[in-house]
C-alpha cells in the first residue's frame, strides 16, 4: 500500500501525485518509470516518474486522464492509497555532457521530459526545451522547465498561448537557423516522436525517444512490451524505455498499442456510467448506453 501525500490538478485532466515510496525515491533516476495497480481488480500500468525526494521518501508522478485506470487514479486524493507501486523500472536516461541538447516534450510527456532536462543541464549541457500542448490550459511545468533550460519554446495547437503550431515546427526552425544540436530527446505522443525522428534522421542528429508500450510485469518476464528496434525485438521495460529514435519501428508500436482498444473503451464506458450514477450532473444515459452496447 502506497499512501498519496499530495494530489493536485496542474491542468484540466492532468494531476500530479506525491506518493510515499521510500525505496523507490532512493533509487529513481531520470527516465525511469513505475508500474502501478490501484486496487485488487486493477490492471498494471506504467507511469513515468517525474521526480523524487529521497529525504522525504516520496516520488511524484503526473497522470493524464485517458482510460478507466488513469481516470480512477485521478479521482484519488491525499490520504488515499494505491495498492501497488513498483520501480524504479527501465534503464535511466543516459546523461552525458554533449554540448547542446534539445528536449522536446509533448502533452503529458512534458512531465517526463522535465527530470531529464534538469539532469542534462546539471551535466553541463546547453539545454533548449520545446514543449507543446493542445491549448493554454494544458501547458504544464513551464516555470520548472524554464529554470533548467537555457531557452524554452512553447507551442499550442490552437495558438491560445505562446506560438501557434507544433513542437516539430520549433525544432525545424532551430535546425534551419543552423543551431548545432548534439542530441534530441523527445517524449510525448507517438505521432510527435515519429515526426521528430523523421526530421532528425534527415539531418543526422542523434535522437532518443522514450516509448510507452503496453506492459504487465515491467521486469522482462512477459515480453508484452516488445518493440521492433532496427528489425530486432527488444523489451521496453528492460532494454528501454529510451531507444535510438532512428531505429524504432513506430508503425508496429502504434499497432500493438491499439491491441486492446475495444476493451479499453468498454472499460471506460462502464466506469463513466458508474461514476455518472453517483454524480447526476454528468450525462449518465450516454455512457451507460455505450457500456451496455459493448457488453458481450
Amino acid at each position: 500500500m502506497f499512501k498519496i501525500i499530495e494530489a493536485q490538478f496542474i491542468a484540466p485532466g492532468i494531476k500530479r501525485f506525491i506518493l510515499d515510496a521510500p525505496r523507490i525515491s532512493r533509487k529513481q533516476k531520470p527516465g525511469q518509470f513505475v508500474i502501478l495497480r490501484i486496487y485488487e481488480q486493477g490492471e498494471r500500468i506504467p507511469v513515468t516518474i517525474e521526480n523524487s525526494d529521497p529525504a522525504l521518501g516520496t516520488i511524484s508522478i503526473v497522470v493524464q486522464s485517458a482510460g478507466k485506470t488513469t481516470r480512477l487514479l485521478n479521482s484519488l486524493n491525499p490520504g488515499d492509497y494505491i495498492l501497488d507501486v513498483v520501480g524504479p523500472l527501465g534503464k535511466p536516461s543516459k546523461i552525458e555532457k554533449l554540448g547542446t541538447v534539445v528536449v522536446v516534450g509533448g502533452g503529458v510527456g512534458t512531465a517526463m521530459a522535465y527530470p531529464s532536462a534538469a539532469a542534462f543541464k546539471r551535466a553541463g549541457n546547453r539545454v533548449i526545451t520545446i514543449i507543446g500542448a493542445r491549448n493554454k490550459d494544458l501547458v504544464i511545468l513551464e516555470q520548472e522547465l524554464r529554470s533548467v533550460s537555457d531557452a524554452l519554446m512553447i507551442t499550442t495547437d490552437d495558438g491560445s498561448y505562446a506560438d501557434k503550431g507544433f513542437v516539430i515546427d520549433k525544432l525545424r526552425q532551430l535546425i534551419e537557423n543552423g543551431t548545432r544540436i548534439d542530441l534530441v530527446l523527445a517524449i510525448g505522443p507517438i505521432v510527435m516522436m515519429r515526426a521528430v525522428a523523421e526530421l532528425t534522421r534527415e539531418e543526422n542528429i542523434r535522437t532518443v525517444v522514450s516509448l510507452n508500450p503496453i506492459m504487465i510485469d515491467g521486469t522482462g518476464m512477459c515480453g508484452g512490451c516488445r518493440v521492433l528496434i532496427d528489425g530486432k525485438s527488444e523489451f521496453a521495460c528492460v532494454d528501454g524505455p529510451e531507444f535510438d529514435a532512428h531505429k524504432v519501428n513506430f508503425e508496429v508500436l502504434v499497432q500493438r498499442n491499439g491491441m486492446y482498444r475495444d476493451a479499453e473503451q468498454r472499460s471506460l464506458a462502464a466506469y463513466q456510467c458508474q461514476t455518472a450514477k453517483k454524480t447526476p450532473v454528468h450525462d449518465e444515459d450516454e455512457h451507460c448506453a455505450v457500456a451496455q452496447r459493448s457488453e458481450r
Binding site: 481488480q41 486493477g42 490492471e43 498494471r44 478507466k68 485506470t69 504487465i216 510485469d217 518476464m221 512477459c222 515480453g223 508484452g224 486492446y260 476493451a263 479499453e264 468498454r266 472499460s267 462502464a270
Partner: peptide, 25 residues
C-alpha cells in the same frame, strides 16, 4: 503472445474475468 504474457494475463491478472478485472486479453 509469449506464453509468459498469456499465462500472466490469465493467472495473475485474471484477464479472463474482464471487465470485472481491468486487465484485458
Amino acid at each position: 503472445y509469449s506464453a509468459n504474457e498469456f499465462l500472466t494475463r490469465i493467472n495473475l491478472m485474471k484477464a479472463y474475468k474482464f471487465p470485472t478485472y481491468d486487465e484485458p486479453m
